[in-house]
Computed example of a mutant assay.
Amino acid sequence: MKEAKNKNSIRDIIGFTQKELAMLLGVTRSKLAKYELGFGDLPDPAKLLLAELLNHMNELENKSKSGLEEVLLPTVTEEQLDRLILENTYQLNLVNRKVKSIQKKQSDKFKAQKLLVYLKNRPQEKSQEHQDKLRLITNNTNKALEINSHSALYECQLKQQMFELEKRLLASAKKKLSKTTENKGETA
Rank of each mutant, 00 (worst) to 15 (best):
P123R: 14
P123A: 11
Q124H: 10
Q124I: 14
Q124G: 05
Q124P: 04
E125R: 09
E125I: 03
E125H: 09
K126C: 06
K126N: 11
K126A: 11
K126P: 01
S127R: 01
S127W: 02
Q128L: 13
E129P: 02
H130E: 07
H130S: 09
H130P: 00
H130F: 14
H130R: 09
D132K: 14
R135P: 00
L136T: 08
L136N: 06
L136S: 13
T138R: 08
T138C: 01
N139I: 06
N140Y: 12
N140H: 10
N140E: 14
T141M: 01
T141K: 02
T141D: 03
N142G: 05
N142A: 14
N142H: 07
K143D: 09
K143S: 07
K143R: 11
A144R: 01
L145K: 01
E146D: 07
I147T: 05
N148H: 10
N148F: 02
S149W: 04
H150L: 15
H150Q: 15
S151F: 09
S151H: 10
A152F: 08
L153Q: 01
L153A: 00
Y154L: 12
C156F: 09
Q157L: 05
Q157A: 03
L158W: 03
K159G: 06
Q160R: 03
Q161E: 15
Q161A: 15
Q161T: 14
M162Y: 10
M162E: 15
F163R: 04
E164N: 11
L165M: 10
L165R: 15
L165G: 05
E166A: 08
E166N: 13
K167F: 08
K167M: 10
R168V: 08
R168I: 07
R168N: 12
L170P: 01
A171Y: 02
A171G: 05
